[in-house]
Amino acid sequence: MTVAVPPSGRVLFIGDSITDAGRDRSCGEDLGTGYAMMAAAWFTARHPEHRVSFRNRGISGDRVRDLRVRWETDCLALAPQVVSVLIGVNDTWRRYDRDDPTSAEEFARDYRHILQETRRLGARIILVEPFVIPLDDAQRTWREDLDPKVDVVRRLAAEFDATLVAVDELFQAADVDDRVWTRDGVHPTPFGHALIAQAWLRAVTPTA
């Protein structure tokens, strides 16, 4: 199922550092240097007549609980027609580096809340799977925490009639040295961002 992007519509990318990608937060229109910028650039290059605007509200370090706190100002107040969410790896990471876990139940509760709020807009929703690209045995153990959260995102996509962008599955299936995609197991290289952007673009289509 693809998401129809209307002419002159507004698309919002929101999430953690993977979406943030170094954006200039003093400029509301800066998209950073990651997949959000790449996807917006290619969409506009292919469909310049549609004059779609793109916004990035990723914030490095965010968990889904942080999205819930800022959802009114950073999502609803912008009145986007399409909302693209990528969140979850920090909900896993904090368990291992700070002993501050987020259970799958808590993750689902807060994620469901922001999607329920988004329904008020009548916006179409794109959910991008959280992912990890393990570079060592320690990161491979993260799968026990991340996999249930990926399952949550898949179930919520079905529940809210959202379009799922299955990048966790995509990275796992890519038969190359994982360091092509990441330097630390979490943050994509430019090549990793490009892979996400390509998957995202396959999930959208312009409307006439």
Rank of each mutant, 00 (worst) to 15 (best):
R124I: 05
G185M: 05
I114F: 05
E49F: 10
D177S: 05
S8L: 10
E106F: 11
F171N: 03
L146P: 02
D145T: 15
R51Y: 03
R120W: 01
V150E: 00
V204L: 09
A36F: 02
R51Q: 14
F13D: 10
R65Q: 15
T33D: 13
D151H: 12
H193S: 11
L164F: 04
T2R: 12
R140A: 03
R124P: 01
D168K: 05
W181L: 13
D74Q: 13
T92R: 08
V165H: 03
R140D: 04
G32Q: 13
P101N: 08
V167Y: 01
D24H: 13
A194F: 05
P190R: 11
D97N: 11
F43W: 10
I114P: 04
T118F: 01
T2P: 12
I196D: 00
E106S: 13
P7V: 15
D175Q: 12
A108G: 11
W181G: 05
R94T: 14
S103A: 08
S60T: 02
T19P: 09
V150I: 12
V128C: 14
T182C: 09
D184Y: 02
L67E: 00
R112P: 11
R183E: 13
F131I: 02
F107M: 12
R65I: 10
V167H: 01
T33M: 09
I126R: 06
E72V: 14
D66L: 11
D91A: 15
H193E: 09
V128T: 13
R112I: 13
D177R: 01
R143A: 11
C75S: 13
E129F: 00
V153S: 04
V186S: 06
L86H: 13
R23Y: 10
E117C: 15
V128D: 07
T33P: 06
I125P: 03
D147L: 07
R154P: 04
H50L: 15
A79N: 14
N90L: 07
A208Q: 06
L146E: 00
H47V: 10
G61C: 05
D91W: 14
V150W: 02
A162S: 04
Q139N: 11
F54M: 09
R25I: 08
H193T: 12
A123Y: 12
D151R: 13
L67Q: 01
F54T: 09
T163E: 03
V176G: 02
G122T: 06
D177T: 01
V83K: 07
A123G: 14
F171G: 03
L115Q: 02
D161Y: 02
D168T: 00
P80T: 05
D151I: 12
I18G: 03
R112D: 15
G61L: 06
M1N: 04
G15I: 04
D145K: 06
F171M: 06
R68L: 03
A45S: 12
R70G: 00
